[in-house]
Simulated scan of single mutants.
Amino acid sequence: MAEWKAKRFWKAATVGEAEGGYTVLLDSRAVKTPAKAALVVPSRALAQALAAEWDAQVEAIDPTTMPITRTVNSAIDKVALQRAEVADLLAEYGDSDLLCYRASHPAELVSRQQDAWDPMLDWAAETLEARLEPRAGIIHAPQDAAALAALRTRVHALDPFELAAFHDLVSLTGSLVLGFAAYHALQPRERLWEISRLDESWQEEQWGIDEEARDISAQKRAAFEDAGRFLELLRTSE
C-alpha cells in the first residue's frame, strides 16, 4: 500500500503578522505545528523562508524538503517544553568534545589535528572563557569543572529557536566548541564542517572513499548548513 501524504490545498503561502511575531498563511489559514500549536516566529526573514518552503510544495507535502519548518516545529513543540533538559544534553558535549580527543600517531594526523583543532580550543578559552584540554586516545578524561560550567551557562542562555538549531550544529559535529563557532560565525560553515570531518578525510586518503559513508556525510553536511542558515534568518531584522 502506498504511503499516504498530505496534499497541497492552498494557492499561495504568505507571511502574516501574529501576536509575538510572524506566521505563515496558507491562503488565509495560519499554519500550525504538528502538535497544533500556533506557528509563530520572531523574525520576518525566518517567516519568509518558511513561506517559501510551503510555497515550493507541489502536489504532496514532503517534509524532507522543509528543513526550516522542521526546526521551527521542533523549537515550538519540543524544545520550548523541555528547554533545560535539551540545554543540559548539549552542554554534556563539552566534557567529551571531538576536538579534545587526539590521535597519538601517525605524526601527520597528529599535526593536522593540532593545526585545525588547537585554534578552536584557543578561541573557546578566550571568547567563551572555557579552556578545554586535549588528550591522546579515546579514553574519557574529565575536563575542568569551571570550563564546563561556563559552557553550560552559555548553552542555557539560548532561546528555544536558537537551541533547536544549535542542537544540530553540536550533534552533527560532535563538538560543543564547533557548535559555538558556527553560532558565532567564527569561520564559514563549510570550513567548520571540514574541521569536524578531519579524521574521516584522513581515513579516505588512506583507504579510499566509502560511497555509502560519503552519502551519509553529505546529508549531515546539508543539515549542518540548514541549521546555520536558520540562525542567520532568526537574527535578520526587518
Rank of each mutant, 00 (worst) to 15 (best):
M1Y: 09
M1P: 04
E3A: 10
W4K: 11
A18I: 05
A38T: 04
A47R: 12
L50G: 07
A56H: 09
Q57S: 01
Q57L: 03
P63C: 07
I68Y: 07
T69L: 02
T71G: 00
N73F: 13
S74Y: 15
S74D: 14
I76L: 14
I76D: 04
V79G: 05
V79M: 02
R83V: 02
V86H: 11
D88G: 15
L90H: 11
A103D: 05
A107F: 02
A107V: 07
S111I: 01
D115Y: 03
D115C: 02
D118I: 05
P119Y: 12
W123M: 04
A125I: 00
T127Q: 14
P134G: 04
A136G: 07
A141Q: 14
Q143N: 12
L148R: 13
A157W: 10
L158Q: 11
D159E: 14
P160Y: 03
E162T: 01
L163Y: 04
A164V: 06
A164C: 08
F166H: 11
H167W: 13
D168F: 13
L176A: 05
L178M: 06
A182P: 00
Q187T: 00
W193Y: 15
I195P: 03
W202I: 00
G208P: 08
D210G: 06
A213I: 03
A213T: 10
I216S: 12
I216G: 05
A218T: 06
K220S: 13
R221D: 10
A222W: 02
E225T: 09
D226V: 00
E232R: 03
E238P: 06
